[in-house]
Simulated scan of single mutants.
Amino acid sequence: MSKAGDRAEGTTQVHAGRDPAGHSGAVSIPPYRASTILFPDLDSLEARDPDYEAVRYGRTGTPTSHAFEEAMAELEGGYRAVSFGSGLQAITTALLAVLRSGDHLLMADTTYGPTRAFCQGILARMGVETSFYDPLLGAADLEALFRPNTRALFLESPGSLTFEVQDVPALAAAAKTRGCTVLMDNTWAAGVYFKPLAHGVDISLQACTKYVAGHADANLGTAICTRDAWRAVKQAAVDLGATASADDLFLGLRGLRTLSLRLARHQEAGLLLADWLAGQSEVRRVLHPARPDCPGHQIWKRDFTGASGLFTVELAPLPRPALKALVEGLRFFGMGYSWGGFESLVLPTNPRRIRTARPWAGDGTLVRFHAGLEEPADLTRDLEAGFARLREALKT
């Protein structure tokens, strides 16, 4: 359960979930690879543990998972957390925990692609109807979309790929007046730069695969919950057999200890790159919430305390050879879908084919960047060379 409040956040990240005295003085809690747990007597074997606080079965909790969940709950100011094998598993399990056949879900149109696929696939087959809504709707306009059977509102801010910033407090308040559970994908802010539960959200979801683990070598997710929401999510995880591996939990705890330091570097490099890209003639606009010219910047400035290293630029429409010339010759930017690790990444993307509530209006070429932990000057020189290749390709 969350204990934050008497220490700075960086200190919390170093100390949360740690108990060296309980692990023979070891600074880091080891990965407990345990499936079978032995009991000293029959009474202990048969005792109920409704809060899953004791280690009774490896799948339902180990010292490693308990430590990680305690640390994540403290990071985001939650009652308790539930760990999962991926961010998507955290999202899908949380949705299954709060929805049943005949229910209606309001889902941000800018949500992560696999979340959309889950809604249109498994949830639809279950008899749950999903309405995708414009993430930039205000609370008054959102009100018109609620139905008597609406049970949940799902937020993602900033939005996936195009970084729309939602008015989370206002939207959450509107949902609460209808008795709806409010869920939010908080991966971009990593639980550091935004605290959903303090803004009216019931379940904050993260792909800890990304910034929390931070080294592109783990698959991990969490649901950080209020007191009222925790039990349903935990029970759904147990019923579905959803669990995280001991080694990935260990890597998540390792990454958490340096999270603020790494995020500060990602933020610095991301803003430097975004500003440099904004000065290139081929760039129409930069979609980075921390830049004053980005739609949603004022809400970001009001609610967030920082920015991560992930953002998108819209270029003028590029022929494929020019796009290939830009991205394929980059030295320090790899091409890949996931992000949040130490490496910088580039990803050409196209949201037009998956948006339904408000079609993406831009006709340019979108390229998403993740600023890693390399020296920003090296990254800038890499992009300078990439744009030089792009311009040469446009001449042919």
Rank of each mutant, 00 (worst) to 15 (best):
T181H: 00
T181D: 00
T181N: 01
L183R: 05
L183T: 06
L183I: 00
M184C: 06
M184Y: 03
M184Q: 12
D185E: 13
N186T: 02
N186D: 15
W188E: 14
W188T: 00
A189R: 02
A189F: 14
A190L: 08
A190M: 08
G191D: 10
V192K: 07
Y193A: 09
Y193H: 15
Y193R: 07
K195Y: 14
P196F: 11
P196K: 08
L197A: 04
L197K: 05
L197P: 01
A198P: 05
H199W: 07
H199L: 11
G200H: 10
G200T: 09
V201C: 03
V201F: 08
D202A: 09
D202T: 10
D202S: 08
I203N: 03
I203A: 06
S204R: 09
L205S: 02
L205M: 04
L205G: 02
Q206F: 10
Q206I: 15
A207R: 05
C208G: 04
T209W: 15
T209C: 13
T209P: 11
K210R: 14
K210H: 13
Y211Q: 12
Y211D: 14
V212E: 04
V212M: 09
G214I: 15
G214V: 15
H215T: 15
A216G: 07
A216K: 11
D217V: 11
D217A: 09
D217M: 09
D217K: 04
D217W: 07
D217S: 08
N219K: 11
N219F: 11
N219L: 10
N219C: 10
L220V: 01
L220D: 00
T222L: 05
T222E: 00
T222S: 12
T222Q: 00
A223P: 03
A223N: 03
A223C: 00
I224Q: 04
C225W: 02
T226E: 01
T226R: 03
T226D: 02
R227S: 04
R227T: 02
D228E: 15
D228A: 15
A229W: 01
A229Y: 02
W230L: 05
W230E: 05
W230Y: 14
R231C: 05
R231D: 11
R231P: 05
